[in-house]
């Protein structure tokens, strides 16, 4: 029943249980036998099945695509957002990353901007507020010109893509000691600012998105933990890019509005 060198291991799961936003919450410990071919979330599925059979409530956790692209999943595993494997969302993590006898501590993404909903599920809606503040190019349906009218240098397109690869999971915020959302915000700002289509709103977008970000999240002090945790390995360079653009935006937006 395996793809290669799968084995059955026994692990101890120490998981955060919290009934609701106002509950204090606590850890509970469970033992689970599992094949190393299973994914981490399939291990939680099995644990939930047995909890259900025993008449207990299953552990609430979020996931959807289970392919690392929708950004719905995300928990702290042994203190690391999305767990031990680099460039991997929680749903892509497999039990072959663990050994027989391991204790695995599972907690929700912890950040002031992400209140706990229940057990491992958190509210990441502030990320939508940042996008709403300007994470778009204003082009109504039907108003577009031919796609090849404006060539985009391949390097710029590729770099924009590197930023656009963000899945909005919030691991960057969870990993940051300051609960800052700079990597998330700068990925969107970088994506749009690197493309010719994004130039018209470049300065207003930067200023507005950064200011909404600051309403919800902490400040960046260059720890770099966000990049380490990012399942898409988004570069810290985008944060530098955003910071530079933000300073320029302050000046330019004043000039544009006739104040300077």
């Amino acid at each position: 029943m395996s793809t290669g060198n799968a084995e059955i291991i026994n692990v101890t799961i120490k998981v955060w249980r919290q009934n609701g936003p106002s509950d204090d919450g606590h850890f509970e410990t469970y033992d689970q036998a599992i094949t190393t071919d299973a994914s981490f979330l399939e291990m939680l599925d099995l644990l939930n099945d047995s909890l259900n059979e025993q008449g207990s409530e299953p552990i609430a956790f979020e996931s959807d695509c289970r392919e690392g692209i929708c950004g719905t999943c995300g928990v702290m595993i042994n203190g690391r957002a999305h767990g031990p494997q680099k460039a991997t969302a929680t749903c892509q993590l497999h039990m072959r990353e663990f050994k027989d006898g391991d204790e695995i501590v599972v907690e929700p993404f912890r950040a002031a901007g992400f209140p706990v909903i229940r057990d491992l599920a958190v509210d990441r809606s502030p990320l939508d507020r940042i996008i709403e503040a300007g994470g778009y190019i204003s082009v109504n349906t039907g108003a577009a010109s031919d796609a090849n009218l404006t060539p985009v240098p391949k390097d710029a397109a590729d770099q924009a893509f590197d930023a656009a690869a963000c899945i909005g999971c919030g691991a960057c915020v969870a990993a940051c000691p300051n609960s800052a959302a700079q990597l998330f915000t700068s990925a969107k700002i970088g994506h749009l600012a690197l493309l010719p289509q994004g130039q018209a709103e470049r300065w207003s977008r930067t200023e507005e998105m950064v200011e909404v970000m600051e309403e919800f999240f902490g400040s960046c002090t260059n720890h770099g933990e966000c990049h380490e945790a990012c399942p898409k390995e988004i570069s810290l360079d985008f944060i530098a890019f955003m910071n530079r653009d933000y300073v320029k935006a302050k000046v330019k937006n004043r000039a544009l509005s006739g104040q300077a």
Binding site: I137, V139, A157, L195, Q197
Partner: peptide
Amino acid sequence: DQATAQGVP
């Protein structure tokens, strides 16, 4: 055309 104008890379 629409997607390109929106910044789809």
